[in-house]
Lab assay of single mutants.
Amino acid sequence: NLFVALYDFVASGDNTLSITKGEKLRVLGYNHNGEWCEAQTKNGQGWVPSNYITPVN
Protein backbone atom coordinates (compact mmCIF):
# COMPACT_ATOMS: atom_id res chain seq x y z
CA ASN A 1 0.00 0.00 0.00
CA LEU A 2 2.00 2.97 -1.29
CA PHE A 3 0.75 6.43 -0.35
CA VAL A 4 2.01 9.99 -0.76
CA ALA A 5 1.78 12.83 1.77
CA LEU A 6 -0.53 15.69 0.75
CA TYR A 7 0.70 18.02 3.51
CA ASP A 8 3.53 18.41 6.00
CA PHE A 9 2.84 16.91 9.43
CA VAL A 10 5.06 17.51 12.45
CA ALA A 11 5.08 14.69 14.99
CA SER A 12 3.71 15.76 18.36
CA GLY A 13 4.62 12.71 20.41
CA ASP A 14 6.66 9.54 20.58
CA ASN A 15 4.23 7.46 18.54
CA THR A 16 3.57 9.97 15.71
CA LEU A 17 5.66 10.34 12.56
CA SER A 18 6.70 13.56 10.84
CA ILE A 19 6.04 13.55 7.09
CA THR A 20 6.75 16.04 4.31
CA LYS A 21 4.43 16.91 1.44
CA GLY A 22 5.25 14.63 -1.51
CA GLU A 23 6.97 12.00 0.65
CA LYS A 24 6.07 8.39 -0.13
CA LEU A 25 5.05 6.03 2.66
CA ARG A 26 3.54 2.63 3.32
CA VAL A 27 0.39 2.27 5.40
CA LEU A 28 0.52 -0.57 7.92
CA GLY A 29 -2.93 -0.12 9.48
CA TYR A 30 -5.60 2.25 10.78
CA ASN A 31 -6.98 3.05 14.23
CA HIS A 32 -10.53 2.08 15.24
CA ASN A 33 -12.21 5.10 13.60
CA GLY A 34 -9.87 5.52 10.62
CA GLU A 35 -8.71 9.02 11.57
CA TRP A 36 -5.09 7.93 12.03
CA CYS A 37 -2.97 5.42 10.17
CA GLU A 38 0.25 3.75 11.12
CA ALA A 39 2.76 4.51 8.40
CA GLN A 40 6.35 3.69 7.55
CA THR A 41 8.82 5.93 5.71
CA LYS A 42 12.56 5.77 5.20
CA ASN A 43 12.82 7.85 8.39
CA GLY A 44 10.82 5.57 10.66
CA GLN A 45 7.38 4.37 11.65
CA GLY A 46 4.49 6.01 13.48
CA TRP A 47 0.98 7.45 13.33
CA VAL A 48 -0.09 10.17 10.88
CA PRO A 49 -3.53 11.71 10.18
CA SER A 50 -5.17 9.61 7.47
CA ASN A 51 -6.52 12.72 5.71
CA TYR A 52 -2.93 13.92 5.16
CA ILE A 53 -2.16 11.07 2.72
CA THR A 54 -3.55 9.65 -0.51
CA PRO A 55 -2.88 6.43 -2.46
CA VAL A 56 -0.31 6.56 -5.26
CA ASN A 57 -1.92 5.65 -8.59
Rank of each mutant, 00 (worst) to 15 (best):
H32E: 14
E38L: 06
Q40L: 12
E38K: 14
R26D: 14
L17N: 05
T20C: 08
T16V: 15
P49S: 01
A5H: 00
N33E: 12
K42P: 07
P49T: 00
L6M: 10
K21W: 02
R26Q: 04
E23M: 07
T54F: 02
A11V: 03
S18Y: 03
S12H: 03
E35M: 06
K21V: 06
D14W: 05
L17F: 03
A39Q: 00
P55A: 12
G13P: 04
S18W: 01
L28A: 08
P49C: 02
S50V: 13
N51F: 12
V4D: 03
G22L: 01
Y52C: 13
V27G: 04
G44V: 03
W36L: 10
L6D: 11
N15V: 08
Y52N: 13
V27Q: 01
L28M: 15
G13V: 09
G29M: 11
F3I: 01
N51L: 07
S12T: 04
N31H: 11
Y7A: 11
G13H: 08
E38P: 01
K42W: 06
E23V: 03
E23R: 01
G34W: 05
I19G: 02
G29D: 13
L2K: 15
P55T: 11
F9P: 00
Q40M: 13
L6C: 02
N43M: 09
Y7N: 12
L17W: 11
L28P: 01
E38A: 03
D8V: 00
K24C: 02
W47V: 06
R26L: 10
Q40W: 09
W47T: 02
T16H: 13
N31V: 07
G46F: 04
N31R: 13
L25P: 01
V27D: 01
N31E: 12
Q40F: 09
G44A: 09
N43V: 12
F3E: 03
K21M: 07
Q45C: 10
I53D: 00
W36I: 04
G46S: 01
G22K: 03
G29V: 06
S12Y: 02
F3C: 06
W36D: 06
I19A: 02
S12D: 12
E35F: 04
D8C: 03
L2C: 10
V4N: 04
G34H: 13
Y52K: 09
W36M: 14
E23Y: 00
G29W: 07
L2M: 14
Y52T: 15
N51G: 10
A5Y: 01
S12W: 04
F9D: 01
V4W: 05
Y30P: 09
H32R: 14
G22D: 15
L25T: 04
S12I: 06
N57M: 01
Y52I: 06
Y30S: 14
W47K: 03
W36E: 09
L2F: 15
T54M: 12
I53C: 13
F9N: 03
G44Y: 05
D8P: 09
L25S: 00
N1G: 15
L28W: 05
N15M: 14
L6F: 04
G46P: 00
L28Q: 07
I53R: 00
G22M: 14
Q45P: 03
L25Y: 10
R26S: 13
P55N: 14
S12K: 09
N57L: 14
K24P: 03
N43Q: 14
V48Y: 00
